[in-house]
């Protein structure tokens, strides 16, 4: 098995090459006539609206838990009044974007992977293609764009509900008026906190949609490949998210945000 590592490197390079080619196909098909508005809006609904409960509950509980966890420490330093500030910054800059993206990798990326995978297995994508229609335009472009738009919006919603959770956490031990809490939280948040986080989530959205589509569209024949497509979509999308997060923090530091 002396060749095994070489073979697996070759496999990785091949996969990377195929992903780049698929990305080209995506970009080539965005700028076409006959944009599939109807399907795009349906996907925004499926991807965005249907994820509201999961994302909302997650955001709320994260805010709540972070507040409760940090309270004893902050109290020891006599810095309870900093809690809203600290929670706001950590939610907006890092925790909500990454956690929501990872959750969406599990829900959305795998869903797209399974859906397109089963369309590939049952020859529906071939049927679309031989009828002269453009399956990349209809299936891939709409889904990726819907993710690019909906993931940032879902993250903003999680931020907002995270504040609400944090407010509840603070109120378990002290009474703080909502006015005081939110003015403290927001006084510390600047545009410079929100902007890089927002940009980051656009790339997370792209990764989630792109990997789901790539894995589903290129899945093999045979029913077991649907499961494989869904599973590897989650794994790969999660990895992309972490890598993008690592790159983003370097960039924002370099740019001084």
């Amino acid at each position: 098995m002396a060749n095994a590592p070489a073979a697996s490197y070759k496999g990785i390079l091949e996969e990377a090459g195929n992903q780049v080619l698929f990305m080209f196909r995506f970009f080539r098909n965005i700028f076409r006539f006959d944009f599939e508005w109807e399907e795009f809006i349906r996907q925004c609904y499926m991807i965005g609206y249907k994820s509201f409960p999961l994302v909302g509950i997650t955001g709320f509980i994260i805010g709540f838990v972070i507040t409760l966890q940090s309270e004893p420490t902050m109290k020891a330093f006599g810095a309870e009044s900093f809690i809203p500030k600290m929670v706001a910054i950590s939610l907006i800059r890092e925790i909500c974007p990454v956690v929501i993206a990872l959750i969406c990798a599990g829900k959305i990326s795998s869903g797209i992977g399974a859906e397109l995978g089963s369309m590939q297995v049952s020859e529906q994508i071939d049927a679309m293609e031989v009828s002269g229609a453009n399956p990349v335009q209809y299936l891939v472009v709409t889904r990726i764009l819907a993710c690019i738009i909906m993931i940032p919006l879902l993250t903003l919603m999680a931020d907002a509900l995270g504040f609400a959770g944090s407010y509840l956490g603070v109120n378990l031990s002290n009474h703080v008026s909502p006015q005081l809490f939110f003015s403290k939280a927001f006084s510390s948040v600047e545009f410079g906190d929100l902007l890089p986080a927002f940009f980051k989530t656009i790339f997370f959205g792209f990764a989630i949609g792109f990997i789901g589509c790539y894995k589903g569209y290129n899945s093999n024949r045979g029913t077991e490949s649907v499961g494989i497509a869904a599973n590897s979509a989650v794994v790969n999308a999660s990895l992309w998210i972490i890598v993008i997060d690592g790159i983003a923090v370097q960039l924002t530091n370099a740019l001084g945000y």
């Binding site: 369309m119 049952s122 529906q124 049927a127 293609e129 009828s131 002269g132």
Partner: peptide
């Protein structure tokens, strides 16, 4: 060409 040639797939391949 693809509109002039019809293809019926074994599974019928309806968009489900």
């Amino acid at each position: 060409l693809r509109t002039r040639v019809g293809f019926l797939f074994q599974s019928a391949a309806l968009y489900d």
